[in-house]
C-alpha cells in the first residue's frame, strides 16, 4: 500500500473513538485500528457507567463503546479490528504494520492504546491465572457462585468489582494495602454498606496458594508485618493499570512508569505528527470522559498539524 493517509489512530477506547469521530468530521479520512481482541478498550469489561455525562440513568460500558464506534463509522472513519504490531514513527511518513502483515502509512498518528491490568507480580498468581485468579469480574464472577473470594486493590475498579461480585459470591473480602480506600466516596460507601463485603485493611497478598486451583492466600499486615493464611477459592486482581506503551519504547519519550509525555497541555509527543491521548498519557484522572476529552484534543492537534 503506497497511499499515505492523513491520520492513523491506534487503539479504540473512549480516546481512540472520540479522536476518530473528530478526525472523520474534519474530513481527514481517519483509519482506526481497534485491536483484534481489545476493541472498545477497558470499558468493554465493565458493567454500568453512572458518571458519563448525558446518560441520566447510566449506561452499560459495552453499549457506550458501541455507540461511540457507530458514531465514528457514521462520519466515515475506517474501522479495522486488528492490532498494530510495529510502528516507525520518526519520519515525515509514519509506517505502521498490523497483525495480518499489512502496512499502513500516514502523515500523523494518534496513539490511544490505553492500559493493561497490573499484576501483583507473584509466580503463583500467573500459574493459577484462569484457575481462580482473574482480572475480569464481569467475565468470571459467575464461576464463583456461593463461594468466598478475595479482591485485591483499593481504587474504583477494586470497589466496583467487589460490589459486582457479591451478586454471585457468598462473601467478598476486599484486601487493601492501606487503611482507607482510594475509590470515590459514593462507591466506597456503597461497598461499606454491603453486608457481603468484608474489608481487610493494611494487608497485602504475598502468595497465592493451591496446587491446581486457588485454595487460599498468604497475607502480610503492612503495619506490623504479621503473616497469615486465609482460605479463598478466587482472587480478583484490581490494583491498577500499566500503560500499553511497549511498542513506543525508544521512539517516544516516556516517563519512568511508561506513560507518554506530552508537551504542556497539548497531546503532542516528542515526535512531529505523533499525538497521544487517553490512559496512555494519564496518571491522574483515568476516566472515560477525560479519555474522550483528550481524544478530541488529539484529533484537533492532528488537524492543526496537517493544515501546516
Amino acid at each position: 500500500m503506497s497511499e499515505v493517509r492523513n491520520v492513523v489512530i491506534v487503539g479504540s477506547g473512549p480516546a481512540g473513538y472520540t479522536a476518530a469521530i473528530y478526525a472523520a468530521r474534519a474530513q481527514l479520512d481517519p483509519i482506526i485500528y481497534e485491536g483484534s481482541v481489545t476493541a472498545g478498550g477497558a470499558l468493554m469489561n465493565t458493567t454500568e457507567v453512572e458518571n458519563f455525562p448525558g446518560f441520566t440513568d447510566g449506561v452499560m460500558g459495552p453499549d457506550l463503546m458501541d455507540s461511540m464506534r457507530k458514531q465514528a463509522k457514521r462520519f466515515g472513519a475506517e474501522l479495522i479490528t486488528d492490532d498494530i504490531v510495529e510502528m516507525d514513527l520518526a519520519g515525515d511518513v509514519k509506517i505502521l504494520k498490523d497483525g495480518s502483515g499489512n502496512t499502513v502509512k500516514a502523515k500523523s498518528v494518534i496513539l490511544a492504546t490505553g492500559s493493561a491490568y497490573r499484576e501483583i507480580g507473584l509466580v503463583n498468581e500467573k500459574r493459577l491465572s484462569g484457575h481462580g485468579v482473574s482480572w475480569c469480574a464481569t467475565c468470571d464472577g459467575f464461576f464463583f457462585r456461593g463461594q468466598t473470594i478475595a479482591v485485591v486493590g483499593g481504587g474504583d475498579s477494586a470497589v466496583e468489582e467487589a460490589t459486582f461480585l457479591t451478586r454471585f459470591a457468598d462473601k467478598v473480602v476486599l484486601i487493601h494495602r492501606r487503611g482507607e480506600l482510594r475509590a470515590s466516596k459514593i462507591m466506597a460507601e456503597r461497598a461499606k454498606a454491603n453486608p457481603k463485603i468484608e474489608f481487610l485493611w493494611n494487608t497485602e497478598v504475598i502468595d497465592v496458594l493451591g496446587a491446581d486451583k486457588v485454595e487460599g492466600l498468604q497475607l502480610r499486615n503492612t503495619v506490623d508485618g504479621t503473616e497469615s493464611e486465609r482460605a479463598f477459592t478466587g482472587l480478583f486482581v484490581a490494583i491498577g493499570h500499566i500503560p500499553r506503551s511497549e511498542l513506543l519504547v525508544g521512539q517516544i519519550t516516556l516517563d519512568n512508569e511508561g506513560y507518554v509525555i506530552c508537551e504542556g497541555r497539548s497531546t503532542r509527543t516528542n515526535l512531529k505528527g505523533v499525538f497521544a491521548c487517553g490512559d496512555l498519557v494519564d496518571h491522574t484522572y483515568r476516566q472515560a470522559i477525560t479519555a474522550a476529552g483528550s481524544g478530541c484534543a488529539a484529533a484537533l492537534d492532528a488537524e492543526k498539524f496537517l493544515a501546516h
Binding site: 476493541a39 467475565c139 459467575f142
Partner: peptide
C-alpha cells in the same frame, strides 16, 4: 465462553 463475556465475543470471530 458465554454471551455476556466481552473478551469471549472478541475472540469468537478469530
Amino acid at each position: 465462553w458465554a454471551e455476556w463475556c466481552g473478551p469471549c465475543r472478541a475472540v469468537g470471530p478469530i
